Simulated scan of single mutants.
Amino acid sequence: MLNETSHNKWKYTLQPEDEGKKYEEILKRRLHFSRHLLQGLKQGERAWVDGRFTFLSTRGHSGETLSLALQAEEVANIEAEPLPLHIVYEDDYLLAVNKPWGQVVHPTPRYPRSTLGNAVAWHWQSQGQEHVFRPIHRIDRNTSGLVLIAKNRFAHQQLAWQLEHGWVQKRYIGFISGQITENSGQIDGPLRLVPGSFILRQVHPQGQKALTFFRVLRRYPAATLLEFDLKTGRTHQIRVHCQSMGHPLLGDDLYGGDTALIGRQALHSFSYSFRHPAYGRILTLRAPWPADLLDLTRALAL
């Protein structure tokens, strides 16, 4: 049983099925702690049982409370910049923000400044905190919406495990050109880089598995509003899958989308649902629509 954290310690109450097992085994097998994370917990006094320091190699008993110090001191890895930041949710483990389109998530040689990472570093610095910038996932520069960021190694590892095992539900809304007859469906199209390109992707049998579910939210005379449920998280997945249907996203000039009504791909990451890494409860976060997509709905309805 997971308990709420207190005094910067994460707590777990051992269950009958944990009887006689080593704490390290319980954390690894039952709670999905990575080997790297467990190694870090063995450095210094970072584990206690019922208030007494313990080694993770000790065997536990049902009813004991195992406490771990997961918030190790860190040095920020990104330069802080005073940039606007729309915070959707924050606690000791996670930060979720609504990223505007046009902003890169992480600094790169091409975009070294004014990124989401720079804005987050400034926010944490202003709160007297230092964390390594660890986005759980990234969205394209011209895609708007939710980005989830782990505030420590534990949260990042736990959420990466959930992503790998399909426990995270990521939903997007997007406007595609033309109308489709079906009300829902799926696109199962492996993706790979187009030969000779470092950017363009294509559906190809030799690509990485990519699965997108969609359903129609509204039909317009020349476009359709879809909700996308991603089962994999490949680069440009929704954009390429829409192109493969013959209905590219509006504004997506890289994949053949019409730019008459909007100057960027009409795609927004609006919902993110997962199990909180420390508390175990399901958390669903949503990001409001940006102004340009609201303007697009009005223009399409004319």
Rank of each mutant, 00 (worst) to 15 (best):
S269C: 15
Q243D: 03
S67F: 02
I26W: 00
G196V: 04
I180F: 12
Q202A: 10
R52E: 11
F175D: 03
S273C: 12
W48I: 10
R275F: 09
E74N: 14
Q103V: 12
V194R: 09
F228G: 01
A150I: 04
F154I: 03
Q125H: 10
G196Q: 11
V75W: 01
P82Y: 13
S57W: 11
N183S: 13
G207P: 14
E17C: 08
L37N: 14
T259G: 01
Q103E: 14
S184H: 12
L37I: 14
Q157F: 02
F214N: 02
P290A: 07
L146E: 09
R171L: 11
T232M: 11
Q179F: 07
Y93W: 09
R141L: 09
L217S: 01
K21G: 03
F53V: 09
Q206G: 15
L68K: 04
T212K: 01
A260W: 12
M1N: 04
D253E: 14
V132S: 07
D91V: 06
Y93L: 04
V88S: 12
F53M: 09
A266V: 07
H241N: 00
Q162I: 05
Q15H: 07
R46W: 02
P135F: 13
A223I: 01
A76C: 15
R286V: 02
F133K: 14
Q202L: 06
L249W: 04
Y89K: 05
S62W: 11
F228V: 07
D292C: 01
C242E: 00
W48V: 02
G178H: 08
G102E: 09
L31T: 10
Q71Y: 15
P221Q: 07
I139L: 10
L2E: 08
F270V: 02
Q125K: 10
E4P: 05
Q162R: 00
R141M: 13
Q125R: 15
E227K: 02
